[in-house]
């Protein structure tokens, strides 16, 4: 089995699961509501999504994990960050936001600005 990949938020969910498993789905819903601020539907969605990826299994409303905390930690957490908003926007809106794209040169320039400011301040 490949190293399972989970998102940060899913990892937070797994932390709760590992602590309480085996645990009833209803109980998980309550726990997630308290600790993650999730709506019940969100919890059910995540349970389903993770069981599809064989990270946990849901048997008769009892949830147990299929992977250990160590296994997940081994995988790089943020690798799978989706290009969330990119590409989903109509081009004409994107045109107005283009200038927000920041180039490396610009990053350097701004960084230098801050650094100079810090130095100037310490002088």
């Amino acid at each position: 089995m490949n190293t399972p990949k989970v998102f940060e938020s899913e990892y937070r969910f797994c932390l709760i699961l590992w602590e309480h498993e085996p645990v009833k789905t209803t109980e998980l819903v309550t726990l997630c509501q308290e600790q993650l601020g999730w709506k019940p539907t969100t919890t059910y969605t995540v349970i389903k999504r993770l069981s599809e990826r064989s990270i946990l299994e849901n048997n008769n409303k009892i949830v147990t994990s299929l992977v250990s905390k160590d296994q997940v930690q081994a995988a790089e957490l943020n690798e799978m960050v989706e290009k969330t908003f990119e590409g989903s926007l109509p081009a004409f809106i994107a045109a107005f936001t283009k200038h927000q794209k920041i180039s490396d040169a610009e990053i350097d320039a701004v960084q230098q600005m801050i650094d100079r400011y810090r130095k100037g301040e310490s002088k």
Binding site: F7, E8, W38
Partner: peptide
């Protein structure tokens, strides 16, 4: 939707 509560009305999400 899966954003995780940090505190008060502050959430964190990988999205």
């Amino acid at each position: 939707g899966t954003a995780v509560l940090l505190r008060d009305s502050i959430f964190q999400s990988e999205n």
